[in-house]
Every structure is written in structure tokens, then in C-alpha cells.
Nucleic acid binder design. Structure first.
Lengths: 213, 213
DNA sequence: GTCTATATAGGGATAGAC
DNA sequence: GTCTATCCCTATATAGAC
């Protein structure tokens, strides 16, 4: 139902990219702040510097917009991970690299996990479908490497699905539950970015030690 | 602003508890499903078996209702944890017990983390204030025990805040990111409840191994 | 305390001009 | 492609009867 004719270049607002992209970027920004639910179409239009009606012209309705933002975010998350686990390096090295990469990406998009969280709660079907399309590759690659490392005796045998969830939990949770994290940090008086920078190193270590045979 | 005169007992709908409690329970149930944002007041009223106007009578507005549900949920979460960490047992034993307890509670309220997640995103101030009131005690108790165990040489020295976040991540994330978890489980064809039951045992083990000196 | 009926606002979506 | 103007619906919130 959404119609996207990119034909004749626009003339007016040439600030960054074409109008459709500007709207998408604006929607992304607002959704990160307010969530896909509490975001007002007006606010998105303002942020994009266009009229509310244009949002409907390009994305039909709020759902179309949410879906587009969601899909682009997912597509950006996983291909990067894909490359790491495709590498033919030892498990330990790949893990460290993947963790570092994930933290860099989330550090640059700290509200992404919260948004995805909400989306996955409101539209679990869409999320699963999307995951299957974009994340099955990387997940399979990680699984294969873990299995191989276990078989080779480098890692303690652990249930694969538990480990996959644990790895993601240790990376994503500090962001998705940011307010919780900050409560903990209030004690030590530490800065969130600081905490994340340190975590980038300690998490891989934590996982590897837990997996020692 | 919310007014709660519990004076004269009600006469009609006596099904479970007084009306205020029934409304609160209903709001809890609906919020778990739809989130505090997408929930309709009508749906809550239906679930409680009362009229929409009564919701306003007791809780003034949707925000008041959300706050009440949120506060009760938080107050139920942490006192239980409190008791465990107050026990004068070895760290390892307390950890296993606390993990088991947490999983039991979340297993019975699987959508609670998602709800809290959203609340903490939309009202970070309220969340922090609430955390300070209800969770600082338990957190301090855990911290003290970990520090003592490290000083005694039973645990590898690790940054305390990192560990606190990691422990909670490993427990909460599978629920808060349930759709993600289920995607992972789709591979192994396993059931969510099954996965959680197993996790109750493996997570403590995972943490303790990661902390070996 | 609990209901019915109603005021009111806010926002999503569309029609149509330019 | 982009804007203005408007329709319409939904949900919240209140007033007032019982």
C-alpha cells in the first residue's frame, strides 16, 4: 500500500538526502525518544521539516512508518555481525571482535534496544519474521563456531541456546534497561559512557571465563 | 490527586477483593498484554467488570493507574530478593537461591519485564525514584556480599557495577526480549517454559564460573 | 460507590489546490 | 511532490442521576 515513486528529484528542501529519507530519519529519531507508540506524526513532520500529509504520501500511515524504521534498523544491526562471524578466526578472537562491534554500534544508537524491545512486544510476529530474514545467518554462524569449539574441547559443553541468549543479554540489557543501569551507576558515581567503554572489554572476558572447560 | 476513600464496603461486585483492588488487578493484566501505552481504559474496565468512570474515580487518570500498577509491581519484586541477600550464607548459596527466586517470580509474571522496560523508558525519573526507594537496600546487600567474597579471595576481582548489571541481564533479558529468545529457540525447537526451567540452574553456574579467581 | 450520558480534545487520515 | 484545509473517529475525562 505504501507508494514510493522516487522518479523526479525534489526541488525544495534539499538539506540531506531526498524527502523520503529525511522523513525516515526523522521518524527514527522521534521513535527512539518516544517509542513507536507515543510518537506524534506532527513531531515527526516537524523534525523532517515537512508537512504531516507528506508522511502519509510516502508511508501511508503510522504503521508503515514504524515498519520502515524497524526494518532499516534491523538490517543495519546484523550484516555487521555477519562479517565478524564469517571470519575464519578462533572463537575467542571472533567473540571479542563481535562484542566490541556490538557495543560500538549500540553506543552510537543507545535507544535502539528500547525501541526494538517495544516493537517486538507489540508485533512479535513481525519481529520473528524480520529476525528470520536478517538474523538467522549470523545466529547459525555463531552456533556453528561454538559447537566446533566445544567439540574441539576448547569450551565447556553448554546448551547452545542458553549461551546465545546470555551473550546477547550481556550486551543489550545495559542499553535496553538504561535507567536500571544508571541506578546501579549512581552508587559508584560513574558515567554511562564510561561504563559502556569498560564493559566492551570485560564482557568478552566474563563470557570466556564462564566457558572454560 | 487520586482519591481513595475505602470507607463503606461495597455491595455489588464482590468477586475478588474490593473494587479498587479489582481495578488494579485488571489494569495490571491489561498493561502486561498491551503495555501502559496501548491499553484502552475501556478494556481495563471490562476486565474489572466495572464502568469506565470508576477508573477515574479511584485513580484519577490513566497515568495514576499506570503509576499504581508500576509501584505495586516494583514493591513485589524486591522485598523477596531482600530476604535472600539478608541471609548470612556463603555468596554462592545466596546467588543460587536468588537466581532461582527471580526466575520463579518472572516465570509467573513473564510480561512484567517488558512493562517495566517501557515504563522506565517513558518515565526514567519515576523509575529511578522508585528504584531508590525499593531496590537500594537489596542492591547494597548484594554489593556488600560480593565485595566481601572478593576480599576473602573467593571471587576474582571484577568491577562491582558491571557484575550487578550482568547478573540482572542474564535473568531479565530472556523475558524482556522474549520474541528474540523464541527466535533462538525456534532452531532447537524448544519450549520457552522449558528453556526457563533449565536456565534457572545454568545461569548461577555461568556466573560463578565467570567469577572464579 | 457506581452508573449513564456527554463534552472535548487530539490526532490520524483524506481531498483537493497548487 | 508538497501544501492547506477538513473530516472523522477514538479515547479520555467530567457532570450529574441514582
Amino acid at each position: 500500500m505504501p507508494m514510493r515513486q522516487k522518479a523526479g528529484r525534489a526541488m525544495a528542501q534539499e538539506r540531506d538526502g531526498d524527502t523520503e529519507t529525511r522523513i525516515l530519519d526523522a521518524a527514527h529519531a522521534v521513535f527512539m525518544r518516544k517509542g513507536a507508540y507515543g510518537a506524534r506524526m506532527q513531531e515527526i513532520a516537524d523534525e523532517a521539516g515537512v508537512n504531516r500529509a507528506l508522511l502519509h504520501y510516502y508511508f501511508h500511515d503510522r504503521e508503515g512508518l514504524a515498519r520502515a524504521v524497524f526494518e532499516r534498523a534491523m538490517e543495519e544491526m546484523f550484516p555487521a555481525a555477519m562479517r565478524v562471524w564469517a571470519a575464519d578466526a578462533p572463537f575467542e578472537q571472533n567473540l571479542r571482535e563481535a562484542v566490541r562491534l556490538a557495543f560500538d554500534h549500540l553506543g552510537a544508537n543507545p535507544y535502539l534496544p528500547g525501541f526494538l524491545q517495544t516493537e517486538m512486544h507489540v508485533h512479535p510476529e513481525r519481529f520473528r519474521e524480520m529476525m528470520a530474514r536478517v538474523a538467522d545467518g549470523p545466529l547459525a554462524a555463531i552456533s556453528a563456531q561454538i559447537r566446533a569449539a566445544i567439540d574441539a574441547g576448547h569450551l565447556r559443553p553448554v546448551p547452545l541456546d542458553q549461551l546465545l541468549v546470555s551473550i546477547h543479554a550481556l550486551i543489550v540489557f545495559p542499553f535496553s534497561a538504561r535507567a536500571f543501569t544508571e541506578t546501579v551507576l549512581a552508587e559508584s558515581g560513574r558515567d554511562f559512557d564510561d561504563f559502556i567503554a569498560e564493559r566492551k572489554e570485560t564482557v568478552a572476558e566474563f563470557i570466556l571465563r564462564a566457558l572454560r572447560p
